[in-house]
Amino acid sequence: MYPPKFDYYRAGSVEEALALRKQHDGKFLAGGHSLIPVMKLRLSDPGVLVDIGRIDGLKGISAANGSAKIGALTTHAMVEAADNLPDILPEAAGWIGDPMVRNRGTVGGNIAHADPASDLPTVFTALQAKIHVAGEGGSRVVEASNFFTGLFETAMSDDEMVTAVEVPSKDNHTGTAYAKLFNPASRYAIVGAGAMLTMQGNQCTAASVSIGGLLPNAIRCPSVEAALFGQTLNEETIAAAAAAVANDIVADDVMGDIHASAEYRQRMAPVFVKRAIAAAAARA
């Protein structure tokens, strides 16, 4: 189909982007792979687009001092190909859309859109990522677990934009993994689970676990984490810990659709949490 009319401004810097957006009450356009399809279906009519896709310095991955910084305009393809990021990131990025989508879709655009079925919110929540956000008053950092606040909702105001996401860099004692139940049509996540485990031998010394897809937004799973902490991990203890995800999910919040009922999704939560944990443990 065909998008409605809009005015188009191209920003050369973050400051210019913020100013243009405020001046014209527009919407930011990065890769456009979330926005353009809904505009074509005429489900979105922003009137003004501020293209941030060419801003210098927002594209690329840099690692230093135990953390890696992913620029907001970094594409999923770049994340998929990166060798200095925790395993969960290339793994999950490789399952977003398809190669063409990954060549255009950006990390910043993806998380700003905050689609509940998207993979990166779950992944960043498990990684305890820090989302760098720029606004008129300057920059701030939001913890991933506080960033995704609801269905297509984030902790950002309309006047703010994502500039980067900071994640722990790859480390030998920490294993990370993502497990995903695919929607057979769209290939988005019906349920996605992320895990980051630090191990000493078979013992789990730190655990961060997240779940998404079935809820309006991705969440941390403190009950699962508590059940993992200090445990010697084996098939049984992992399954037991994963089962605790039921305590982290508010049943009434679980969404259902033609592909997967709420009940089915709820049953799948421990299954995919278990798979993420097992894979992460094997990598630690």
């Binding site: 279906l41 057979p184 049509a185 769209s186 033609i258 592909h259």
Partner: peptide, 29 residues
């Protein structure tokens, strides 16, 4: 057998009106 289903709700709305909801076989299926 495994994927495709044109689904209407009781009000006659087609719930599988795009490739995001109507599952077409892909190369990896």
């Amino acid at each position: 057998a495994l994927l495709e289903h044109g689904i209407y709700d009781e009000d006659g709305q087609l719930l599988t009106g795009t490739f995001l909801d109507y599952a077409m076989p892909r190369a990896d299926d």
